[in-house]
Design a protein around this nucleic acid. Structure first.
Lengths: 240, 240
DNA sequence: CGATAGGTTGAGTCTTCTCAAAGATCGTGG
DNA sequence: CCACGATCTTTGAGAAGACTCAACCTATCG
């Protein structure tokens, strides 16, 4: 396992430099692999590990009574999933591998112990939770007030932000095995509506959809196409 | 000022008994009063205090580009507002007094210092942030998949939960100066839609709407009227 | 008692949903 | 390398829900 990767991931997630090595001291990390479709944990389970993605794609899902599902979050390499369980260990959604995935598990109990030795890091964790909360507020505003096209733009913006963070060569090309149904489930609309939303975005020349690859052709212009009522502050430079 | 009130409020919010007095040690709390419509802080401001509501009604608002507003949260007495700013101090929404309001301000810097002496409390703060995050996820599911009636039910459930927590004699009577426009702004629909949603709920005999007073006549039956697709897990016994 | 804010109701429009069929793409096995 | 099946996407038509606009009703307060 590449421990440097995890050390760097911790510092990227916490936005604090130089603490990753210390935080992994005396922590028994191990590598886990999941196949596409495997469930890492179910809603309601006790979560005992943080997971640092090294390869693949993870999504958080809530299942509705009628069989529909709400995809709450997508996680890519460098993401560390589970900070929200440092306080309360009960999983608030299913965590599912979206494709073959490799992740490094970090026992929460041990991690919390090393956090005690680094107040700076502990503060950063709290700060991270704040950012995640704020991001969710923003998404709530989009869901409450935006139309389908705006929701799609918000969604693409979020994925792109992570690729920018990861310093990918071409952050505008989202290399993701994502069907329109997946996007629909993330945005609370139907696949038909997603298809029509992409048709509009393609007609405007800002996006090129292609399963397995979505390409953002004109990022600034894309943002302008979001309905004006949610434009302000709806696109922070964040990725939580 | 009634310090006992704040001590008890801290313990209620953190869900930990016996720590309130310690946490207020050497903390310079003070009482502030705001008139209806006053802004406590604006989005983007640095937040330097927690606020414990002792009287009145506070709401968190985001303003949209077209003048619409999204009401993100309502806070009532015993609530402590601002835990999400312990990490990152930048306000993510306007905080506005909805009616004449009295609150006790608790300097964040001092509070964080006393937190260091009580790891149990520090853990409880993290736990609280987790609960808030989870609540927002739930609301996102309702906004994404629920119809107007379901959103109203979710909203009333949330207000009632706080009254239950506060041990009000009649938790089913929401004594709130809330217009239909306010509810509309909280749920991302129009006042006309709210009017029609209440008409349906009143026809079903589960709610009685009356400005300045909303009465839940049949709580279990009300929950049953929410659209089946969001029924599961959409109504946790929480109030964050 | 009138002014004002808030609530209700109706008609027409728009967006999204549902249902359904047809077209495109991908992976696999022959 | 092609054919086939499975999955995904596109398109159309009709229905449902929410929105807009506007008029009218109601309660409250000075």
């Amino acid at each position: 396992m590449n421990e440097d990767f995890v050390v760097s991931a911790i510092e990227t997630n916490l936005q604090v430099a130089g603490v990753g090595r210390t935080l992994l001291d005396n922590v028994d990390v191990s590598v886990l692999r999941f196949n596409a479709g495997d469930t890492v944990h179910h809603m309601g389970d006790e979560v005992t590990n943080l997971y640092c993605l090294t390869e693949g794609w993870i999504t958080l899902i809530r299942h509705m009574a009628n069989g529909d599902r709400q995809l709450l979050n997508f996680h890519v390499p460098i993401d560390i999933v589970g900070f929200e369980y440092l306080g309360r260990a009960t999983a608030t959604s299913d965590m599912v591998a979206f494709r073959d995935t490799e992740l490094v598990s970090i026992p929460i109990q041990q991690f919390k112990r090393t956090l005690l030795a680094s107040p700076e890091s502990a503060a950063a964790v709290t700060s991270l939770l704040s950012r995640k909360y704020s991001s969710l507020q923003t998404r709530l505003c989009v869901f409450a007030n935006g139309n389908a096209v705006t929701k799609v733009i918000h969604f693409l913006h979020g994925l792109r932000s992570k690729q920018v963070r990861n310093r990918y060569d071409d952050a505008d090309t989202l290399r993701i095995p994502l069907t329109q149904q997946d996007i629909a489930d993330a945005l609370g609309v139907t696949n038909v509506t997603i298809s029509r939303a992409f048709a509009k975005l393609e007609a405007a020349g800002v996006v090129d959809f292609n399963s397995n690859r979505i390409r953002i052709l004109d990022y600034p212009k894309m943002l302008e196409l979001s309905s004006s009522d949610v434009a302000a502050n709806m696109f922070p430079d964040e990725f939580d």
